[in-house]
């Protein structure tokens, strides 16, 4: 008999007792009437019997012990993984703490920068928008005007640096400098810091204002034991240091139109100074000390002057605003 899936299903269900009583009766009638169906029933029944006759295998006697050992192994493995997880957790915790600390530092730095931007005066070194200022009329003092003085219409960063002056007479030098700052109308633009061994004046003003102050300092320059000028460059390079700087060199460097020009002038002066130091006979150095060379190219430093000769009605001329902005930190160091 050719296999008929529907008949086979019915016969299998009959063999397995999965038919209702009525269905069983119908199958019995069918088997009784049809020899082929009866034969197929026996074939399927024999298949079932053959599989059912397969010997029943018993589980290994140590199955329970094997299960217990397997559980112990899994328990150990999970403990190890928990332990490993603990180590990993500790490591992650350290990393997270480090990252959190770094983030805090970065945040503090950022906040500090923002606060500094808000409260600090505009520094010549900072790159900001270039403002076009209306030139204020310069004081009309024809004999004191620099030979190539031209009205400065574009504001921009100029000199930025530090002038270190060493003196045994700190109090006198300090008094002189204070007076010079006041005379040149720079008091409001100067921050003073008084320390036992030094005085620090941080001046943010126009180039002209600084020129005048340096000119005043020039009158007592020889009283200083040494003077060195540190010219700031951009943040990525070392500042230029000019030892034994003269007032004229200082004025020349400060008088440049841009920060880059100031740095370049300071470098040239430093090279010349080193060259002079190395020369036998120190002729060049003495020349430099006498300002013979620099004087040729130097413009006359405009001196501060009183608007009135009457000391009682002394009017301090404010330095012209706008133009090239400079920043100078003067440090008076006590050598005693």
């Amino acid at each position: 008999m050719k296999a008929n899936p529907q008949i086979d299903e019915l016969l299998c269900s009959f063999i397995d007792g999965e038919l209702s009583l009525r269905q069983q009766t119908e199958v019995q009638r069918l088997v009784a009437r049809d020899a082929e169906v009866a034969k197929r029933l026996r074939q399927l029944q024999n298949c079932s019997n053959l599989v059912n006759a397969l010997p029943v295998e018993q589980a290994p006697v140590d199955m329970l012990e094997q299960i217990k050992r397997s559980l112990e192994r899994q328990s150990l493995l999970s403990e190890r993984s928990v332990s490993a997880g603990t180590h990993a957790g500790a490591w992650h915790l350290k990393v997270r703490r480090f990252v959190a600390a770094a983030a805090m530092i970065a945040l503090m730095g950022g906040l500090g920068a923002v606060v500094y931007q808000i409260v600090a005066p505009v520094s010549p070194g900072t790159s900001g928008p270039v403002a076009i200022d209306t030139p204020r009329p310069a004081p009309v003092i024809p004999e004191l005007l620099p030979p190539v003085a031209a009205p400065m219409v574009v504001s921009g960063p100029g000199f930025s640096g530090r002038l270190e002056l060493r003196t045994a007479a700190l109090t006198q030098a300090d008094a002189f400098l204070k007076a010079a700052i006041e005379d040149n109308g720079l008091k409001g633009l100067t921050q003073v810091q008084t320390l036992p061994d030094r005085r620090i004046y941080q001046i943010e003003c126009s180039r002209e204002g600084l020129d005048r102050l340096v000119a005043d300092l020039g009158t007592i320059w020889r009283n200083f034991e040494s003077a060195s000028l540190v010219v700031n460059t951009d943040s990525f390079t070392e500042p230029v240091v000019l030892e034994s700087v003269t007032p004229r060199q200082t004025a020349q460097i400060i008088g440049q139109d841009s920060a880059e020009a100031c740095v370049e002038a300071a470098r040239r002066a430093a090279v010349l100074s080193r060259f002079a130091q190395a020369m036998p006979g120190r002729e060049i150095l003495s020349t430099l000390e006498n300002d013979q060379i620099t004087a040729i190219a130097m413009p006359e430093i405009p001196r501060p002057r009183q608007a009135s000769n009457d000391p009682e009605t002394k009017v301090i001329e404010a330095p012209p605003q706008g133009g090239v902005q400079t920043s100078l930190t003067i440090v008076l160091l006590n050598t005693q």
Partner: peptide, 25 residues
């Protein structure tokens, strides 16, 4: 013999025929 036998096989008898069981497995 098992396949040609049209009569219903007794599982108990079948179980004693080891070779047949191996083939069935």
């Amino acid at each position: 013999e098992f396949l040609s036998d049209d009569s219903a096989a007794d599982p108990a008898v079948l179980a004693q025929r080891r070779e047949l069981c191996d083939l069935a497995k």
